[in-house]
Design a binder for these strands. Structure first.
Lengths: 200, 200
DNA sequence: GCCAAATTACACAGATCTGTGTACCTATTT
DNA sequence: AAATAGGTACACAGATCTGTGTAATTTGGC
């Protein structure tokens, strides 16, 4: 309730730093010493807040699990807007793919990691599905899965290629899929580049 | 020239084992001792064939870089067939995502790894593009990128969800995209489940 | 200013990992 | 039978990593 952004807790500082390093360099690649040194605290302090590196990893993934906030935009705008914000994130030089996919890739069959990763993917698919239901799409379930594929596909491609255009490609494909499902894409909901093209 | 599959070289045995372990458990997660022990050779022998673990990693990735072999099937069958074989691979319990994406995810900004990963992704996109050109698709470049997104998206989703149905979803989306580009999908090129449904 | 809690410095245990050095062994070839 | 190549056993160096123990010190609340 106190909106003062004043002092971040020590625990928060540790978590924020661990998040950044884990995400950018990989979980196995970053040791607890490195994290402590980065903040300028002693390793002992870190272990006073997190009992083990595993606990830190769990907290890292939990922190990354943010539900999409409700929006007053139209469902179509929200769906297609997803790809616009993806493109923005791809353009940032500190983007390194999906933290959940990366964690599963490097931590393998770790139960808890897989579990939270699945939950995250499913929560985003359900977000898509809800919007599609609002649009009256009959096969909302199947289409939401396909949209999720496009999201993760563009993320994986950008991870290796470092090419934000992958988000546009995904958006274009998503537009086709939506139209095919009977969704009307209004002029204003379409992206600006295409709109400019149309007018010229 | 000798088609005898008789004796695999020691180097091949090392590489084959490293491949399996790196892929299934992650590159950082597998030590050279583990690889040597798995084969039942001494660590010294391993280092007599590969000067360093890095060299072994490079060889592993190079080995995974297989170009799709030419086929006499129709372009549409080849494109859609890609998703069928993906589904088959997803169903195998030793499937653990794309080795190149995984390697980039866990090894981070390693130059050489990124390079080979980009080359692999691009080679597959060009394979798609070539087939689309054969089909007379105007926007073969854009569409090939979108198909590649679907491939990588289904791989990423299957990696976390362990659900081969992701391949079907990708195939369905790909079919829509192809039709939208003016490609005729014949009865026989469509998947069997849909065909059965149609007849009933 | 005092007290309790948080933080620090730092050494250290124990595991694991990459890579090397060396002496010995065991095939195959000539 | 001798020589050569390849493999083995095994110890070890040196780095790195997780996690702990402890005593001293700083910090914030009262």
């Amino acid at each position: 309730m106190a909106p003062l952004p004043a002092k971040p807790t020590m625990k928060d500082r540790i978590l924020e730093t661990a998040d950044r390093l884990f995400y950018l360099q990989g979980i196995r690649a970053v040791g607890v010493d490195t994290i402590a040194a980065e903040i300028g605290i002693s390793k002992r302090t870190l272990y006073n807040h997190f009992p083990s590196k595993d606990a830190l990893i769990s907290a890292y993934l939990a922190r990354r699990f943010v539900a999409p906030r409700p929006s007053d935009k139209s469902p179509v705008e929200q769906i297609l807007g997803t790809f616009d914000s993806l493109e923005r994130r791809f353009s940032a030089k500190d983007f390194r793919g999906c933290p959940f996919v990366n964690a599963v890739a490097e931590l393998g069959d770790d139960r808890s990691v897989r579990k939270v990763a699945v939950a995250f993917k499913e929560s985003r698919r359900l977000w898509f599905r809800d919007l599609l239901v609002q649009l009256g799409v009959a096969e909302a379930d199947a289409l939401s899965t396909q949209l999720a594929l496009l999201v993760d596909g563009s993320i994986a491609q950008d991870l290796v290629r470092n090419d934000p255009a992958m988000a546009r490609a995904a958006k274009d494909a998503a537009t086709v899929l939506l139209k095919n499902a009977g969704v009307k894409i209004g002029r204003n909901t379409a992206d600006k580049r295409a709109a400019r093209k149309r007018k010229s």
